[in-house]
Nucleic acid binder design. Sequence first.
DNA 1: AATATAACGAGAAAAATATCACGATAGGTG
DNA 2: CACCTATCGTGATATTTTTCTCGTTATATT
Lengths: 223, 223
Amino acid sequence: MLQEGKEPIVIPKPTLERLKLYHRLLVETDQKHISSEEIAKSLGLNAEQVRKDLTFLKTMGKPKVGYHVETLRQELDELFGVKNTTKVILVGAGHLGKALVNYPGFGNYGIEIVAVFDNDPEKIGTYIKDLVVLSMDNLCRVVKRFKVEIGIICVPKDSAQQVADQLISCGIKGIWNFAPTRLNVPNDVFVVDEDITQSLLTVKHFLELRKQKIERNGERREE
Amino acid sequence: MLQEGKEPIVIPKPTLERLKLYHRLLVETDQKHISSEEIAKSLGLNAEQVRKDLTFLKTMGKPKVGYHVETLRQELDELFGVKNTTKVILVGAGHLGKALVNYPGFGNYGIEIVAVFDNDPEKIGTYIKDLVVLSMDNLCRVVKRFKVEIGIICVPKDSAQQVADQLISCGIKGIWNFAPTRLNVPNDVFVVDEDITQSLLTVKHFLELRKQKIERNGERREE
DNA sequence: AATATAACGAGAAAAATATCACGATAGGTG
DNA sequence: CACCTATCGTGATATTTTTCTCGTTATATT
């Protein structure tokens, strides 16, 4: 039987990606109103696309004025759930882990790191900002006690899968993975990858394209 | 006059994104051959799409066998220019900068960090791994001397634009931006953003979707 | 108050991307 | 050696996404 009734409005993935960019732009701007044209120009898109994207939201623009920045930003905040507090734990107290704990932006996005774990006895007991590094034995206890929703993995890639398994066994359903490897997880667990090697390939590819363009054009000037 | 002659085969952007995933998979696997089906399953795609993507490459699969992992990986290496050495400098010797300098994976991808800069007198002169932190005065000299192609920005977001401008004024044409802000750059400079706030929104959005799903389903079990 | 115009929303058209369907072939099996 | 089947490559089809077009409306101007 086909499921009848209100199907939730699903936002196309490319649109969702752009909505994230709009969000950042709205946070950064000090204008009170902003037009689709201005948004488009800032991000290298075209205005029709911006308007189309924004039709997935309730906020409407006004002719001759544009969109009210504050309203739009708030609706995006809501879409992304920015205002809800999410408790997270972080596994891996290396350089990257330290960098993340010290990252000042989480507060604005409702992310609270409640504990840091590592399995290196040298690191256990040391402080990162105001958090003591705990041993992995404490993982499940802390997850349950603080109702932790997300685990951040920043361990070397060879132990990432193992850490993921431990997190999942403690009931964690969301993983933010900074290890440069693919994780195998059950269907009901989501993984957001922050894999530096992937964007490294992007960087290298850009260089490669430029190189090829120069080769093709010989010594000719471009533009 | 329209330019005649061989136009370079342009790989669609979504395909290119997936090719990066295939690359990682090929690096990780220890199989000698791999089928489109296996690739697809690992990455949650379908086999036809994988095959279609791979038609943009020269490497062909064999019926009953699949694709030769080594060959395919090498062709991807070439596509992304992984084997060419790229000299980069890094600006911002904070936690993140340190984490990056200590990241062991760059070598495999032909990235060599040749210098680290900061404008904090406390940090200038200190060592990160085997690199002395230099003052920004030395920027252009080092860029020219070492033929640096890429600048990595990992300074706080308020100084990111300024650093970008400095890099560009020294002739840098590529920026890998870890600051959570949009950079304004001339057309001939490319920026690859590694903005944690953007993937943070992804994380929050997943949670939000899950929350809404649970609300809709009430106490019903799913699956 | 009438007019002009900047900017919007939305449906239609076009372009890009993903999926399907199927014929071809390499390698295994009897 | 002939057949079977897993897997490929590719042209056809379907779907998604982007762009175009145009009618509408809020504000400014005379």
